[in-house]
């Protein structure tokens, strides 16, 4: 043990970790992610057919999917979908909803201000920070690059 350097031990320990069931995980991510997106397509078509324009459809689809994700989180179902589907449950917008609703529920015990409201973004906060910041950069770059034209 003493003659093993930290680096050697870390490499040794890495080999002792059981490997994930790669193929099964990929298949489940594909199925769960695919199903959620198909439901999204159903909602899109339904909103289109009720005469909304493209922007309203995109917004409405997001809102409905976020609601479904939130409700399934509240009912204690989404964590089980996440366990089975992995990235298939995390990457669709329902997973974004789960990332906001689950800490909000968890921290209800610390009150409505410091609990629910301030802990709501512990997982999804970075998503908004990077998403909004990079979109502003894209907008500004667009202006700079098109100015001469």
């Amino acid at each position: 043990m003493e003659n093993m350097t930290n680096k050697e031990y870390q490499q040794y320990a890495e080999k002792k970790i059981p490997k994930p069931t790669y193929f099964k995980n990929m298949l489940m991510a594909f199925l769960v992610g695919g199903i959620i997106c198909t439901i999204g397509q159903l909602i899109r078509n339904w909103l289109f057919n009720s005469g909304l324009d493209e922007k309203a459809v995109a917004g409405g689809t997001s809102i409905i999917l976020v609601f479904i994700g939130a409700l399934l989180t509240g009912l204690g179902v989404y964590d089980k979908i996440g366990k089975i589907g992995g990235a298939g449950a995390a990457i669709p917008i329902t997973g974004f909803s789960n990332a906001i609703v689950s800490p909000a529920m968890e921290h209800r015990t610390e009150g409505l201000i410091f609990g629910v409201a301030s802990k709501m973004f512990i997982i999804a906060g970075p998503v908004l920070v990077y998403g909004v910041s990079s979109s502003v950069i894209v907008g500004i770059l667009y202006l700079l690059l098109t100015k001469g034209r």
Binding site: M26, M28, F30, G40, A87
Partner: peptide, 12 residues
């Protein structure tokens, strides 16, 4: 289904 599923597979 396929496009959404494949994006999630990349994440997985």
């Amino acid at each position: 289904f396929i496009v959404g599923g494949l994006i999630c597979v990349v994440g997985q």
